[in-house]
Lab assay of single mutants.
Amino acid sequence: KNAAQIVDEALNQGITLFVADNRLQYETSRDNIPEELLNEWKYYRQDLIDFLQQLD
C-alpha cells in the first residue's frame, strides 16, 4: 500500500487525514475509527506525513 491509497481509503470512509505541527491528524464525523485503519496510519505515519505535506 502507499500513502495515496491510505488517504483515499480514509476519505471513502468519511475521514480526512492532514498534518498539523508535523503530526498526522484526522477529522471525521464518525463515532469511531476502525482499529485496522488506526494501525495502518501508525505503521505508515511518516509516509503519510510526507505525502500530505507535498500536497500543501
Rank of each mutant, 00 (worst) to 15 (best):
D8N: 14
Y43S: 09
N2F: 09
D50H: 10
Y26S: 03
Q13M: 15
V19C: 06
Q13T: 04
Y44S: 04
N32I: 12
E35A: 10
V7K: 02
Y44P: 01
F51N: 01
A20W: 12
A3S: 04
K1P: 04
I49E: 04
R30I: 08
L48Y: 01
N32C: 11
L11R: 14
E36V: 09
W41V: 04
V7S: 02
L48G: 00
D31R: 07
Q54E: 10
Q13W: 13
A3D: 01
Q13A: 13
F18D: 02
R30E: 07
R30N: 10
Y44L: 03
Y26R: 01
F51R: 02
N22T: 05
L55D: 09
N32M: 12
R30S: 08
Y43H: 10
D8W: 15
A10P: 00
A10F: 03
F51M: 03
E36P: 06
L24F: 04
D31K: 10
E35V: 11
N39R: 12
E35F: 09
W41L: 07
N12I: 12
I49A: 02
A4C: 09
Q53M: 14
D8S: 14
Q46I: 09
R45V: 10
N22C: 13
A10W: 04
N2H: 11
N39E: 13
E27K: 15
N12F: 11
N22E: 08
N22S: 09
Q53A: 10
I33R: 00
L48W: 01
N2I: 09
K1S: 04
L38S: 05
E40W: 04
L38I: 12
N12V: 13
Y44M: 05
I49R: 03
N32K: 12
A20S: 12
L24N: 01
L37I: 06
I15S: 01
R45A: 13
I33A: 03
N12D: 10
L37A: 03
T16W: 13
F51P: 00
D31Q: 11
I33N: 02
K42W: 14
A20E: 13
E27A: 15
R30L: 12
E9M: 05
L55W: 10
K42H: 14
N12Q: 15
I6W: 02
L38D: 03
L17G: 01
R45T: 11
Q13Y: 14
N32T: 14
D50V: 11
D47S: 12
T16K: 15
E35H: 08
F18Y: 13
L52P: 00
K42F: 14
Q25N: 07
N2G: 10
Q13S: 07
P34Y: 03
A20R: 15
E9F: 07
D8I: 15
S29H: 11
A10V: 02
Q46P: 04
D50K: 12
L11H: 10
A4R: 13
N39Q: 13
D21T: 04
Q5C: 07
D50C: 08
D56Y: 08
L24P: 01
N32Q: 12
L38Y: 07
K42D: 13
L48F: 00
F18G: 04
W41T: 02
I33M: 04
A20C: 15
Q46T: 08
V7M: 05
S29Y: 11
R23H: 11
T16F: 15
I49P: 00
T28N: 04
P34Q: 05
V7C: 05
A4W: 11
E9G: 03
N12C: 12
I15W: 03
R23E: 15
A20I: 14
L37S: 03
N39H: 09
L48N: 00
Q46N: 10
N12Y: 10
Q13G: 05
A20H: 13
A3Y: 03
N12L: 14
F51I: 03
E9A: 06
T16C: 15
I15F: 09
P34H: 04
Y26N: 01
W41H: 02
L24S: 00
E40I: 10
I49H: 03
T16R: 15
T16V: 14
R45N: 11
A10D: 00
A20P: 02
D56C: 11
F18Q: 04
Q13E: 09
Q54R: 14
R45D: 06
I15M: 03
F18R: 06
Q53R: 13
N12S: 14
L52V: 03
R23K: 14
I15D: 01
E9S: 05
F18L: 06
D50R: 13
K1C: 04
R45L: 14
L38P: 02
I49Y: 06
I6P: 00
F18P: 02
R45S: 12
E36A: 12
T16H: 13
L52W: 02
L38A: 05
L52S: 01
V19T: 05
L52D: 00
A20N: 10
Q5S: 07
A3E: 02
A4Q: 13
K1R: 07
L38H: 05
F18I: 07
L37H: 02
Q53H: 09
A4N: 06
S29L: 12
N32H: 14
I6F: 02
Q25S: 09
A3I: 10
G14M: 05
Y44C: 02
D56R: 10
D31E: 12
I15V: 09
Y26E: 00
E36F: 09
L55S: 11
A20Q: 14
D47P: 07
S29P: 06
D50F: 11
D21G: 08
N32D: 14
F18K: 07
T28M: 04
Q5N: 05
I15K: 00
D21K: 05
D31Y: 08
I33D: 01
S29C: 13
I33P: 05
Q54A: 12
V19F: 15
E36C: 06
A10C: 04
Q13N: 10
I33Q: 01
P34I: 03
Q54H: 12
E36H: 11
N39L: 13
N39V: 10
T16M: 11
E27F: 14
L11N: 09
A3K: 01
N22V: 04
R23F: 09
D21H: 08
G14H: 05
